[in-house]
Design a protein around this nucleic acid. Structure first.
Length: 490
RNA sequence: CGGGGUAUAGCGUAGUCCGGUUAUCGCGCCACAUUUGGGAUGUGGAGGUCGUAAGUUCGAAUCUUACUACCCCGACCA
């Protein structure tokens, strides 16, 4: 394996091909643009899923499940939504196969053509709103706060492992409300939930912001987002939350009888994060030795590696390992004692580093005779020889340190790669170096598109907490009241 | 969909220009022995429709054509 991933990442495909596949996370399947997620990778996703699900439930949401297939006509109902998704849909036209007339292989049975084609969901707004129409009669039925964990398909022309696969796993929340304010508050709230998840669990710092009209979700009135920066300085949209206004309620005729006995259209929000977050996790923390996982999401937090020669030594180590496992499990820390005789210690060291296990404890007969063990932390690769006294407490604290350190490191890197740029000449130079450029912008889509055309940079978001500041648009010189983030993105 | 590239064992590859013995090498895998403090060593062994299909030829991994998949660049992309 080449030893310079972090500095060599002109493109992350290379990172994924070498790092992720070797890390047993995923591998290409033969289906175009899809990926197989291996058990270790899926274990990370399950942890993410579980954490997010808990956060959703704490904010009053319930899980539900809607069909994979959506009648084509549903898509025709919301004009912008059609525009946004029509070009990338998988379409089901038949429900049966038949022997090919030439006797070779199978073809769709001409007699089994569907009256109306079905679309494999690229997102579920349409089918969910068609359902909500039947669920909502009065303001007493509101709000509806549903989430679904599902897979979706978007027939992208160009795919990239984890970041843009043809099929991906995600959650999508769909809520219905009485008022515009309630719906918009909901979408803002969920943006904050996503941001908290990214920062506290993934240790990935994100900017909370609003998308420009040009970058907005097809069919949304407003799109809130969390935007992260990868180690190479490129931006990654990590999650979005949309205020949909009454667009889908109008398209699917979802009305409710209000408190003043009037028929009103329902207000909506939708929000989602996907397996793309796994890409963000890898690209934010991993290094030349492989994955680095934050303790909060690592499937395995601590691994114990024994080194011994005699049975007597093994017994002594086993006793300590048992004790440690009992102590750590009591603290809800996941731990594995790898005394597999088929592999040697050196092999195990490399293996667990590659998998990003946060803490490794080497239980060596030699050190143990002096009452010591070697504690290795994956984030800094530092080794620490310490007494077995109070070891469980030490490891518990160390995991917290690692979690914090990963976040701090990412914040520091982002700060280094974020700067104000005030002239167009500087902009063209600086954008080549990567990172976030904080610039004034005149607020028009026209300017945004010209900048994109000339530099490939897009406005990642208008940060919600950016200070108001008078300035001139970097491109047109027209007045502007706050800086926005320009960057190249994945 | 346009431009460029690639396809040989589980993985990485040599051979392709210039057709010719049993398709090369490394890693991994299996057996045995010796080995355990940073991916052990030796000996032996298994593993191949050379991406698919057709064509040229006495003979094709090698030449021709078509197709498919993947990678890079573009277009595209809440």
């Amino acid at each position: 394996m080449a030893k310079d991933f972090v500095t060599r990442q002109e493109n992350y495909s290379e990172w994924y091909n070498e790092l992720v596949v070797r890390a047993d996370l995923a591998e290409n399947s033969s289906v175009r643009g899809c990926m197989v997620i291996k058990p270790y990778g899926y274990a990370i996703w399950e942890k993410m899923q579980h954490t997010l699900d808990t956060m959703f439930k704490e904010t009053g949401h319930h899980n539900a499940y809607f069909p994979l297939f959506i009648p084509k006509s549903f898509f025709e109902k919301e004009a912008e939504h059609v525009e946004g998704f029509a070009k990338e849909c998988a379409v089901v036209t038949h429900h049966r196969l038949a022997k090919s007339p030439d006797g070779k292989g199978l073809v769709p049975d001409p007699d089994a053509r569907l009256e109306e084609e079905l679309i494999v969901r690229p997102t579920s707004e349409t089918i969910i709103w068609d359902t909500y129409r039947r669920w909502i009669k009065s303001y007493r039925d509101l709000p509806i706060l549903c989430n679904q964990w599902a897979n979706v398909v978007r027939w992208e022309m160009r795919t990239r492992m984890f970041l843009r696969t043809a099929e991906f796993l995600w959650q999508e929340g769909h809520t219905a409300h009485e008022t515009s304010e309630q719906a918009e508050d909901e979408s803002v709230k969920m943006m904050h939930v996503y941001a908290d998840f990214a920062e506290k669990y993934m240790a990935v710092p994100v900017v909370r912001g609003v998308k420009t009209a040009n970058e907005r979700f097809a069919g949304a009135v407003n799109t809130y987002c969390i935007e992260a920066m990868m180690q190479d300085g490129k931006a990654l949209q990590a999650g979005t939350s949309h205020f949909l206004g009454q667009n889908f309620a109008k398209a699917f005729d979802v009305k409710y009888l209000s408190r003043d006995n009037k028929l009103e259209y329902v207000w909506a929000s939708s929000w989602g994060v996907s397996t793309r977050l796994m890409g963000a996790l890898i690209m934010t923390h991993s290094d030349d030795n492989g994955l680095v996982l934050p303790p909060a999401l690592a499937p395995l937090q601590v691994v114990l590696v024994p080194i011994f020669k005699t049975d007597e030594e093994k017994q002594m180590i086993d006793a300590l390992a048992d004790q440690l496992m009992t102590d750590l499990k009591a603290k809800n820390i996941s731990i594995k004692y790898d005394d597999d005789a088929k592999t040697k210690p050196g092999w195990k060291f490399n293996e667990y580093e590659f998998k990003g296990v946060p803490v490794r404890v080497t239980l060596g007969a030699r050190d143990l005779k002096e009452g010591k063990v070697e504690v290795f932390r994956r984030d800094t690769c530092e080794k620490d020889l310490r007494s077995t006294e109070g070891l469980a407490e030490h490891i518990e604290k160390l995991l917290k340190d690692i979690q914090q350190n990963l976040f701090d490191k990412a914040v520091k890197l982002r700060a280094e790669k974020t700067r104000n740029v005030d002239t167009w000449e500087d902009f063209k130079k600086e954008i080549e170096k990567g990172g976030f450029l904080m610039c004034h912008w005149d607020g028009t889509t026209e300017t945004e598109l010209k900048i994109k055309e000339e530099t490939k940079a897009t406005i990642r978001c208008i940060p919600i907490d950016a200070p108001q500041e008078e300035g001139k648009c970097i491109y047109t010189g027209k007045p502007s009241h706050q800086r926005v983030i320009f960057a190249r993105n994945y």
